[in-house]
Design a protein around this nucleic acid. Sequence first.
DNA 1: CGAGCCGATAAGTGTTCCCTTAACGCGCAC
DNA 2: GTGCGCGTTAAGGGAACACTTATCGGCTCG
Lengths: 321, 321
Amino acid sequence: MTLTQLEAFVLVARLGSVKAAARTLTVTEPAVSSALASLRHHLGDPLVQRTPTGMALTPGGRRLVGIASQIVGLAREAEAAIREVQGAPEQLRAVATSDVAESVGPALVAAFTARSKAVDVSLGVCAASGMAALLRDRLADVALGPRLPGDGSPPLQSAPLFRYRLVFVAAPGHPLAAAGALEPRTLVDQQWHVGPDAADGASPVRAILDRLGIPEGQIDVFPSHAAALAATEHGHGIAATVAHLLSDDQGRQALVRLPVRGTPLDLMWHVTMLGADSRAGAASAFNRFVGTPAATQAMHAPLRGVPPSEFRPPVHVTIWS
Amino acid sequence: MTLTQLEAFVLVARLGSVKAAARTLTVTEPAVSSALASLRHHLGDPLVQRTPTGMALTPGGRRLVGIASQIVGLAREAEAAIREVQGAPEQLRAVATSDVAESVGPALVAAFTARSKAVDVSLGVCAASGMAALLRDRLADVALGPRLPGDGSPPLQSAPLFRYRLVFVAAPGHPLAAAGALEPRTLVDQQWHVGPDAADGASPVRAILDRLGIPEGQIDVFPSHAAALAATEHGHGIAATVAHLLSDDQGRQALVRLPVRGTPLDLMWHVTMLGADSRAGAASAFNRFVGTPAATQAMHAPLRGVPPSEFRPPVHVTIWS
DNA sequence: CGAGCCGATAAGTGTTCCCTTAACGCGCAC
DNA sequence: GTGCGCGTTAAGGGAACACTTATCGGCTCG
C-alpha cells in the first residue's frame, strides 16, 4: 500500500472514472489501473467496480475512500509544513474553469501575487465537474468557477467572486448582426463556437445549449475560449462570451453583440475552497483578498485593450488537464 | 516519501533512538537509518539530529512528527477497516512487559479470546518505556504493565488492571532463607536474578535495585522472568517475583519467600490504550472486559500448579522486541 | 588513551513500484 | 453487426525501495 496507490484510488472514487483520474494525474490509464490493481490485491477487495454509469464503490471502497483521502491530504500537508518551516514560499495552487482562466483569473491571481510576496501561486485549468475532487484531494487549494455544492466530506465553502454578464456575439458581417431584437429560438439554427468549458455539464454555456436544444453537430468546441472568439470573428457562427471582455473588440467592431431578448444574462463566478479548519494558510489569505476592492478592481481592469488570444498572464500557469 | 519512511521517522522521534526503532520494527539499524536518510533527502530537512542524550527533533521534525503519526495511524486503520468490512476477525495486538507476559497476561488474553470469538488476539512482549510509542503508532492496541503517563499526542488512558504483591525469594538452602525479619539493606550484597523488564527504567524492580544501590555487577539479567526464578532455585542468588505466582513453588519448597521488612510491596498493573475516540473497536471491547469479574478471576486462577517456565499460553504470542 | 556504544555510510541484492506502449474484453449505440 | 469508449491485462524497462552485512566516525567514560 503506497501513497501513489491511495491517491489513484481516491481520484477514481471521486471522479468516477479511471480516465479522469489519469488525466488529473497526467499519467496514462494503465498507470492508474495498475495502481488500483495493486491496491485491490493488497487489500483483497475490488474497491471500485465498473457499472454502466461509471465506477461504483464496493462497501470496502466506500469505507476506504474517506481514510485514504485523509492520508493523501496529510501527506501533502506534511510537505507543505516542512517547506513552510524552512522559510520557503508557501504554495497556492488555484484552478479555474477555462472561461475564468481566460478572463479575470490571471489578473486576480497576479494581483494577489503582487500583494503576497511570500506566496508562490500557480493557476491551472480544469473542468468544473472535477473541481470538488481536486480541492478535497488537496491537488488544488482554491477553485474559481461556478458555485460548487459544499456537501460531502470534507465540506467545501463557496463564496461569490465576480458578477459577470454573458452575451451572444457574432462577426459584424453576420446576418443576425444587423437584426433588431432577437428571440432566443432564432439562435437554434446557428453554428456555435464555444470554449472547452462548454463540454462540462456544470457550465452555464452548456446549460444554454441544452435549453435551446442545439444538436451536437452545430457545436464546435475549441481548445480555448479565445480560439472560439477568433473563429467567430472570421466565420459565420456565433459565440457566447463575457460582456466586459468584449469592450475593446466591440470598439474595433471585430465582434458585435447580438441583441437577444433576455440578454445579457446576469451570472456569478464563485471561489471555492475547503473549510477554514482544513485549508492551507495561503488559501485563507486568498479568500480574504478576493473580498477587497483591490481584487474587484483587478478583475475589471486588466484586459482592456488586450485581446484574450494575445494575453499572456504574468503568473506561472500550469495546465493540469 | 513512503509510508515505511514515515513509520521509521515517527518511531525514531518517539523512542529517541534509531536502535530502539529498529528493534521495534524488527529490522537492523541501517534499515531505519536509511529510511530516515531518504526522508531527510526528500524533504530537505535533517528532521532528527544526534545529541548526547539521544535524537532530538529539528523544528521541521517537530512539525512533521504529528502529521506523520496520523498518516501511519490512518494507514493501519485503512487495513483494519477493509478487514472488518470483509467479515475477517478483528485484530487486537496486546503488548505486555515481561512480568505481565509471564504471569497474568496470557490468562487474561485467553479469557478474552474465549469470550470474543470474532477477535484475533496476539500478545507481544516489550519494554515499558516503548509502550507509549507502540500505542500511539498503532503498532499495538492495548498495553499491559505499569501506569503510563497519558499526556502527549494523542493522549493515552490508563486504568488499573491487577493489584499484585512483589516479594523477594531465594532457594531453600540460601543463607537468608532461614533468617528472621530482614532489613532491606541486607539484600545489597546479594546476587540478583531478574527478568528482562528490570533493564527498563519504568519497571518497579528496576526502582528497587536503584533504591538499594545494587551495582550492575550483582545483577544478572535473564531472558525471561521464569529463567531468573529457575536460576534462583539452583543458585545462591535472590529474585523478586509476583507473590501469587509463587504459591505452588512455595508448596514444593523450590523457592521460599524472604521475610524482608516492608514486603510484600503492594503494586498495580495497568492497562493502557488510546482514547475512546481513536482506538480500535476491539480495544474498547478489551477495556470493558478487564473490568468484569471473569477477567479478575482469570488473572487469579490459571497458573496455580503450573510453573511459569512450563506454561504455554493458548494464544498466539508474537515477540516484537 | 583505548573500549564501547551509537548512528551513519558503503556495497550489494532482491523486490516492488511506476510508468510506458500495445493489445484485449466488454458493454452500448447507431 | 460494427464501431467506439472505457477499463483491464500483457510485457518490459528504469528507478526507487527495503533490507542485509561490514565498516567507519564521533562521542563518552573508565
